[in-house]
């Protein structure tokens, strides 16, 4: 009799313990979910605060904000055209020089390099991504820009002097700092990002496919060009977009070498500005609500642009991953 009572008491205690653990389980799940949701809250808060901060400027200038070139703190007329131009132009230059080099490095790492070299070489390229942007800036200002000014830019000006169209792109004087310099530095900065995605997607190509091509007598280059690149196309575009997203939003390195001039020059040797550089240079000095608000509006614009580009990159990479499982 007493034994039965004892076991009933025991099972009641066990029941209680199970209840408690169930509750703890639910609590644990709820806590982790709360912090996961916090990520979405942060994004929402960023969007709301940027929109709110830019309302005064957007109300005052409307759509003209996007098309006006003037940026005059004294008369309080602000237009984003020059920074938008600078952002797009520097990023375009970065992509033109960055993509071929990144692809070259990725091909070298996946198809050419001997096993012992792959890891240290890959690490070295990834360390480029670890160097903070301000270091690129200070190096760009004191080493790279003077080098371009003395050696490269006079050459460009001389070579393209008599070529129509191109001579307006490379019109003199060689300032050293400017759109081209900023674009080239961005080109270096995006290397590790594009390279790492490119290398990863190259490695998803089934060995069977490559070996079949080799078996048919294809050269290494033909395998890369006709098998690897077509197979990984979506992923490659994703990687490029990821690099582009970085280039568009890059701030400190560009701020050092862009020259911060709110105008659009046909020559890419001339100083200009980008969205991020304008904010970094002027925000703490901005007096008056409209000035500050115009800079926040630039921030909103940058956020919308980079968000779109990065989201597209992400979607492409996800699609690539899914395909990698199904295609052979």
């Amino acid at each position: 009799m007493s034994q039965q009572a004892e076991s009933m008491a025991l099972s009641a205690e066990i029941q209680q313990r199970i209840q408690r653990q169930r509750m703890l389980d639910r609590a644990f799940r709820a806590v982790t979910m709360f912090f996961a949701l916090l990520v979405l809250v942060i994004l929402g808060a960023i969007i709301i605060s940027l929109v709110e901060g830019s309302l005064p400027a957007l109300k005052k200038f409307g759509w003209n904000f996007l098309t006006t070139e003037r940026w005059n703190p004294v008369t309080e007329v602000f237009g984003a055209r020059a920074p938008i131009y600078g952002t797009l132009m520097t990023s375009a230059i970065a992509m033109i020089v960055g993509i071929p080099v990144s692809f070259g490095i990725a091909i070298f790492l996946t198809e050419l390099a001997p096993e012992w070299l792959k890891r240290p070489m890959g690490t070295a390229i990834e360390l480029l991504a670890g160097i903070p942007s301000i270091i690129y800036g200070i190096w760009g200002l004191f080493v790279f820009a003077p080098f371009l000014q003395r050696n490269i830019q006079p050459l460009l000006i001389a070579v393209f002097e008599d070529v129509p169209v191109l001579n307006t792109f490379f019109a003199g004087p060689p300032y050293g700092i400017g759109i081209l310099t900023a674009g080239l530095i961005l080109g270096i900065m995006v290397l590790p990002f594009i390279t790492s995605v490119t290398r990863d997607v190259f490695e998803t190509v089934p060995a069977l496919l490559k070996e079949s091509a080799y078996g048919l007598g294809a050269t290494t280059w033909e395998v890369v060009w006709q098998i690897v690149i077509p197979y990984t196309r979506v992923g490659l575009v994703g990687g490029i977009m990821l690099g582009l997203g970085r280039a568009l939003g890059e701030t400190m390195a560009v701020t050092f070498v862009i020259g911060n001039a709110h105008r659009i020059s046909p020559s890419i040797l001339a100083p200009g500005t980008t969205i991020s550089a304008s904010i970094a240079n002027e925000f703490t000095e901005a007096v008056g609500d409209i000035y500050t608000s115009a800079l926040v509006a630039l921030g909103l614009l940058l956020f919308v642009i980079t968000f779109t580009v990065l989201a597209m990159a992400k979607i492409m990479l996800i699609r690539m991953q899914r395909n990698a499982g199904t295609r052979t």
Partner: peptide
């Protein structure tokens, strides 16, 4: 689906320009 959305947004925040974070905290 919630986790997929969080994952997606987080990856974007990972590469988003850090100056935007500066502006956000300034406003906040």
């Amino acid at each position: 689906p919630l986790a997929s959305v969080v994952r997606f947004i987080n990856d974007i925040l990972l590469s988003a320009p850090s100056i935007i974070i500066g502006l956000f905290v300034y406003e906040l």
